[in-house]
Amino acid sequence: MENPKTIQIETKALNVAIHNNQVLKNIDIQIPAKQLTAIIGPSGCGKTTLLKSFNRLLEIQDGIKIEGEIVVDGINIMSSGLNVPDIRKKMGLISQKPYPLPMSIFENVAYGLRIHHDKNQKELAEAVQNCLQEVGLWSEVKDRLHDPASRLSVGQQQRLCLARAIAVQPEVILCDEPTSALDPIAAQQIEKLLLKLKKDFTVILVTHTLRQAKRVADHVIFLYFGKVVEQGTAAEFFNNPKNPETKAYLAGEIS
């Protein structure tokens, strides 16, 4: 074993039901800080649901029942009385399909800064530039910062979403299949970015391409029909899977 890692997120007996359909069953996982954790599993196994429960985004839908604990930095975020927007600020979410906000490129990145931090125009402009540079978008958009964000290509939009997410200075970045809508080159860009970002953030990546998980993950969680089948370091998971279902999945027998 490597040196012990600090645990950023830990769930305890997490159960989620959507319209009386038990989607997540007794999830107990630990997600190490400042690492890239991949959540893999076949379609419909509850990956998105798990990710959305981390920033309490599930509860804006109706018919949701959540039980159990999600402990982030020692605090159970499911306990009542917490300020939900603050929790969400700590956990940036990148969705499968990029959704720029209906405003200019600049305003997209500045949005989170404006609502969370009191910055003057100059600081704002600097922060926006930093974030765009961080995701490698600055050189592409610096001459059209005030154009509508909707005019960017899908790959650019996804990077803009990343820039917008890191602008609010989250601790965790949750990515829900961020590359599935992109072409291979744009996807590669995102992958590289995520690898870079894990120095400063805890990154959780939902993916259903095994190869992507192999390429980038430090830690892997395998979800199957709403249950955690196996979790561990990437090396162990891919080279020495313990569970027969994991073996079957890695061999491509179930999907």
Binding site: L57, P85, R88, K89, L93, L101, I115, V168
Partner: peptide, 26 residues
């Protein structure tokens, strides 16, 4: 789109901020 509202919430917006800044613009 519901995804747009989710995005706004994910950035830590409150309900009124989501309504006034994002939904209104869209």
């Amino acid at each position: 789109p519901a995804g747009l509202k989710e995005t706004a919430y994910s950035l830590g917006s409150t309900k009124v901020e989501t309504a006034m800044k994002v939904v209104r613009r869209q």
